[in-house]
Design a protein around this nucleic acid. Structure first.
Length: 153
DNA sequence: GTTCTTACA
DNA sequence: TGTAAGGA
């Protein structure tokens, strides 16, 4: 039995948001964006309800749409136009997902080094003789450590 | 009670 | 974009 890895969080296993589905009323209350606005944004192609095969015509939105609406609303409140808010939110979400994917691939587990819990970021060199570790300090700065793979310093 | 479309202010 | 109408 394979150990559950963080990668499983992005392919629909644990911590999945696949079943997090909301109606237009829920999204409206969660984001403080009116149902009128949500339907209007849909007409402009900014958001899209989930496809549904049953005959029901009421809109259902996924977690991703909730995040997008939240972002757009935030930008809107900061004074950006709707179009600009959508553009900026799309860019931010793309960055966020890129970062998440990168981290999932870079993370190789935890290790205790000199009494500190650090992230094992895998091999540091092409020859695979050293590993890179990182941790955040108390003031949220990132501290890196490179150690020989065999542990013999 | 909630959501949908259409229409008007 | 809010609100109202008339249905589903």
């Amino acid at each position: 039995m394979a150990r559950t890895s963080l990668r499983d969080t992005s392919n629909g296993k644990i911590f999945s948001t696949a079943n997090l589905i909301f109606g237009i009323g829920q999204i409206s209350k969660m984001t403080d964006v009116s149902t009128r606005q949500l339907r209007y944004w849909e007409s402009k192609g900014y958001i899209k309800p989930k496809e549904r095969e049953d005959g029901n015509t009421s809109r259902l939105y996924g977690y991703d749409t909730f995040l997008k609406v939240s972002g757009i609303k935030l930008m809107l409140d900061e004074g950006y136009t709707l179009a600009a808010s959508v553009e900026r939110t799309d860019a931010l979400m793309a960055e966020a997902f890129n970062i998440r994917g990168f981290l999932l691939d870079a993370y190789h587990g935890q290790a205790t080094i000199d009494g500190n819990t650090m992230l094992d970021l895998g091999y540091f060199d092409e020859d695979h003789t050293q590993r890179l570790y990182a941790r955040r300090t108390e003031d949220n700065r990132v501290h890196y450590v490179v150690k020989p793979e065999n542990g013999a310093n």
